[in-house]
């Protein structure tokens, strides 16, 4: 091999290396390229963060598009009326970015996410009623909101949820787990005003509750394993 051609080869290798680095840098924003199982990089981290914000379990946020991230993407697509292919293309990114964006004024000025109440409520619903029918999850959220409105209980969502002794997931720390997506959906629906419990202030699982007080409350409706009472 002549000196000349060896130089050319070296240049070629350097060029390729630079191209590789530059291309990975320029792919930094979510939505610039199609992401799929096996993709890595900061845009995968962003994807995982946004999915988690909406309650989809992605496992560790590590920038690696693995099995858990793929099933989270599929579930997100299924629950949002998108083609379920596990690939993160234009439509999926647009919907994901829209739903995890900030609230703005009518003039377009950003004023924050304004979702801390939704998140806390969803955590409670998730911990109290994960395996329950969806309607039962909305009803659990509605009980919290009914308490906020009732003069017998504190006046804000955090005050009602953290009221000492009120909810067992607070006492045993379950409330700190990330909420599942159906719980976030249920919290939003209850916040819009839907109340499938018809004004209930208590709910309990009849198989697990021995409290005399709770059994003495007038019962309104049973949804799944929970009885809702006034």
């Amino acid at each position: 091999m002549s000196l000349h051609s060896r130089k050319a080869l070296l240049l070629g290798v350097i060029f390729l290396a630079v191209l590789l680095v530059v291309s990975s840098l320029s792919y930094a924003a979510l939505g610039d390229r199609l992401l799929a199982r096996g993709s890595r990089g900061p845009e995968v981290t962003e994807l995982q963060k946004r999915l988690q914000m909406l309650g989809y379990v992605v496992g560790p946020i590590d920038g690696i598009f693995g099995r858990q991230t793929e099933s989270a993407v599929r579930l997100f697509q299924k629950e949002h009326g998108l083609a379920v292919d596990g690939l993160v293309g234009k439509n999926t990114v647009r919907e994901l970015k829209r739903l995890t964006g900030q609230t703005v004024t009518t003039g377009g000025k950003a004023v924050g996410y304004k979702n801390s109440d939704v998140n806390l409520l969803a955590r409670l619903v998730s911990a109290e009623a994960k395996g329950e029918p969806y309607r039962g999850q909305v009803a659990v959220a509605a009980v919290v909101l009914n308490r906020v409105k009732s003069p017998q209980f504190p006046n804000s969502i955090p005050d009602v949820i953290y009221q000492p002794g009120a909810f067992s997931p607070v006492a045993n720390g379950q409330i700190w787990k990330e909420p599942v997506s159906s719980a976030i959906k249920a919290a939003n629906e209850a916040l819009a005003g839907t109340d499938p419990s018809y004004g209930a202030l208590f709910f309990f699982n009849p198989a697990k509750t021995t409290s005399m007080y709770i059994w003495s409350r007038p019962q309104i409706i049973q949804i799944g394993n929970h009885i809702f009472a006034r």
Binding site: P154, P164, G165
Partner: peptide, 20 residues
């Protein structure tokens, strides 16, 4: 005061009548 009260240890149902 309702908020202060909600921070105190209480039974399952809280101090319903004081709150009310």
């Amino acid at each position: 005061t309702v908020k202060d009260l909600s921070l105190l240890p209480a039974e399952e149902v809280g101090l319903a009548y004081v709150d009310q």
